[in-house]
Structures are given as C-alpha cells and as structure tokens.
Design a protein around this nucleic acid. Structure first.
Lengths: 240, 240
DNA sequence: CCACCGATAAGACTGAGTACCATAATGACG
DNA sequence: CGTCATTATGGTACTCAGTCTTATCGGTGG
C-alpha cells in the first residue's frame, strides 16, 4: 500500500519555486480549477499540473479526485470519536452537544473554504453523494455512542438510531442555513436552539409515565405557606 | 443522449435462446457474479457476457455498474412521491405512515433479493455509499413534504428536517433488524411501533406551551364536587 | 565519496463510462 | 412478399480515474 508522506514533506523547503506544503497546493489547485472549469471538465492531471507536481504525487496525497475537496473529514471524524469516548454515562448529553459544536465550529472557522465547497458540492452530484456518505459516518459514531449509553434498555436500538439521526439532522439544518446565508452570522445560538429542541424531545420520551398526569393536592385551610411548599417539594423530589 | 429501450424490448420474444427480458437477465448476472467473485473483481464485460449481450447493451439498460444492484430505486422514489402528494394537510401523518410502509413492503415482498443485496452492500464500500445516497433522497422527499405541511410556522425548517430524519431512521432501523435476522419475521408490527414512537415524540413537541407548567387551584372548602369539576373543566377547555 | 532512504516522477495497465457508427431485428404498409 | 423506417444491439475507439511498478532526484549519515 502507498504510504502517505511521513509529515508535512517540507516544513521549510529548500526548493525555490513553491513554499506552501504540497497537500495544500493540491487542494487549492483543485478548488480553483473546479470553480473555473467545472468538476467533470477538470482532470487529475490538470490539478497536479497547476500544483506543480506530477499525477503520481496527487494520488499519494489524496486517494481520489473527490478527496481533494474533503481533505479533513477523517481528522474531524477522529476528533468527534475522541470527544465522545472521553465521557461517562452521566455526561453523555454534554459530550454529544460538545461533539456537534466541534463539527460546526470546524466549518465556521474556515468560512471561506466552507462556502466555496458548499457552492461546488451543491451542483455536482458525485460530490453531493460523497458528502452524504460522510455525514452518515458521523451519524454512525453518534448511534454507537448513544447505543452504548442506553445499554439494553427497551427499544435501545431504535432510540439510539433516532437520537443520532436527530442530532445530525439538527446540525445539518443549522449548518445549511448558515451556508445558504453566506456565513454572515454566528450559528452558535441557532445550534444550541436546535440541540435544545432535540434534547427536549427525547427527555420527554424518557419519562413517559409523567405525561398527561394531573396532580391534585388538598391541604388543610389552616396550613402555613411553608408547610404547603414543603409538601409540594417532597412530592416533586420523589419523582426525580 | 442514448435513449433507453422503449419498453420491455421483447414481451414475447421470438428469439430462441433467452426468454427473460434483458434487464432482468443483466441484474441476475450481476448479482450472481458479485456473489461468486466479489464486486471489484467483476467487470461489466463479465456481466454482459453472462447475460448473453454486449457491453454496450449493459450500459443502455443501466447507467453504471452499481445501478445493476439498485434497479428499482427510481420507481420506488416516484411511488413515495406520489403517495405523499396525494394527501392534504390533515392527512399528512397518514400519508407519511403509508409511504414508509410502502418502502418497507417493497423490500419484504422481495425478501430473497433484498437479503442477497444486503449481504453484498454491507461489505462493498462503494455500494454502501450509493445506498446511503439513495436513502438521503427519500429523506429529502419527506423533508419537503413535511416542510410544506408545516408551512411557515416557527422552526418549520428545523422541525421538518428532524421529522424527516426520524421517520427515515425509524424505517432503516426496522429494515436493518429484519435483514439481519434473515427476513424471518413480519416487520409490520415493529414498523408501526417505531413510527408510533416517532409520532408521539413530535406530538409532544407540538404543544410545548404546556410543558413544565404547574397549576395550583384553590377552592372553598364547602364547594361541591360538581362545582370543583366544572371549574377544572373550564380551565382545561380554555387551553384547547 | 558512498550507501541509504523518502519523496517524486514517469509510464504502463485495468476498467468504467461515453460517443459514434454499423448492422441486425422488427414492424408497418403497400 | 418486398420495402422502408425504426429501434435494439454490437463493435470500436476514446477519455480518464485509479493502481502499480520502476526509475530518478535530493538529502543525510557514515
């Protein structure tokens, strides 16, 4: 198997004509050519030529032509995985929230690149499918995490699938809105809103026994307000 | 552009050596060869040869090698679209439920084919990605339908995305369970259970104003039970 | 200076997918 | 029964992605 170059091949290169690392030059050349001539009309040779390297070198850095557009998906996937693994059962929701925030931040931090890629991916079916497949891998991570979290409770599989799908869908909805708007605002608040929506959804389902329940309480008319409050508090806390 | 053969090219063919229509013969040859030699090791020439036609003919029936495995996705997509369109706002939930049932039934009706395809898709990344992209198209249909249904209510976009994702995830969860079990049971009940779960989830969210609300009522100690009931009824009905 | 080693280049090869043209089958019609 | 138009099919050539193998380049340590 072809081993990828050990590191940034030239941290401080002694070569004259090119200073940026080759993988960046290739990615930039790819995006530029895709913009200019379209995805299908651009060959790998074109990309390599503009980057000033050979076709062989292109494939040493990217497994495929599509890969040049999604250079950092694998690294991001690993960060998400790491964040999820670094959590216990009682911090699961925080871990999920954090993980989604990491993904969104990754796009926002590189708004320029994200927007250009978005415009490109939107009109090239092959790239769209590729991106969808990537999203499915995130969803799989979340599903496995939630599944392990829920253990073997009833419907654990179904709930894990639904939660993962909802979390990813919420993220995508927020991200797409931000991209469509040209990245002109901070999507942090919309994301929290969307995630809050999702979490509220499933929190309700986790305590189905409480739904539609009506509590009727009767107190002696002479009871002090403190006594009434104490009784109510005892009742509420017995539920938790 | 190459026009696909107008109809089943030979309803009752006069040719001797082959009676089944060519598209079926090609699909069967493809699946058989993929089973025997693996997906990558099978070339389009191999498939065409086993089906007794030329390579050109293969590409006239299927746009790509992958297409031979998913011959009926387009037709199914159109059926779903038709079912969704044939509904009004107040029958939306029924339409969604029906549509999902149609998809599942499509797999169950051809259990043999579905199971073989499942085993194949599971271990060929290219096919997995392709299938994921197909699922995304279903999800898109549902999303657009739900979005139109919700109109411009607050968070309509987010809710449409979440509902569509949940409906599709529920279907996938049920289908995968059935496939993993070798198609040995009727998944209709599990599907209804899963869809019920999803519908309950969002029904709760549609009345968010009631959540976490506590009602405290005080009545004169001498009030008759009828008077208390009447007061409660008035309060509840004022909410509806 | 030499030996080694990783990065790159160069070229051959397979196979998917496209385009184009030639030919065989079919079906309608006189 | 022949003719003509239509349509499915076969065949061939081409582009390009992706793989593989070999050669060259450049630096580094001995």
């Amino acid at each position: 198997m072809p081993k990828p170059p050990s590191k940034q091949p030239t941290e401080r290169p002694s070569k004259r004509p090119s200073k940026r690392p080759i993988n960046q030059r290739l990615a930039e050349a790819a995006v530029a050519l895709f913009d200019e001539n379209g995805y299908d009309a651009t060959t790998v040779d074109d990309i390599a030529a503009r980057a000033g390297v050979s076709r062989s070198t292109f494939f040493r850095y990217y497994r495929s032509k599509e890969d040049a557009i999604f250079p950092d998906h694998d690294a991001l996937l690993e960060r998400i995985d790491a964040r999820l693994r670094a959590s216990t059962a009682d911090t699961a929701i925080v871990a999920i929230t954090d993980a989604v925030r990491i993904v969104l931040a990754h796009y926002v931090d590189d708004a320029e690149v994200s927007l250009r890629r978005y415009r490109l991916v939107r009109r090239v079916p092959a790239l769209r499918d590729r991106e969808i497949a990537s999203v499915a891998r995130y969803q799989r991570l979340f599903r496995e995490f939630v599944g392990a979290w829920l253990g073997d409770s009833p419907d654990a599989g179904l709930r894990a699938e639904l939660m993962a799908a909802s979390v990813v869908a919420a993220h995508n909805q927020v991200l797409r809105g931000w991209l469509r708007a040209g990245g002109t605002y901070d999507p942090a608040e919309p994301l929290d809103h969307a995630l809050g929506y999702v979490i509220a959804t499933f929190r309700h389902l986790e305590q189905p026994q409480d739904k539609d329940q009506v509590v009727v309480a009767a107190f002696s008319r002479g009871a002090t307000p403190q006594a009434v409050m104490a009784a109510i508090r005892r009742h509420l806390e017995s539920r938790a």
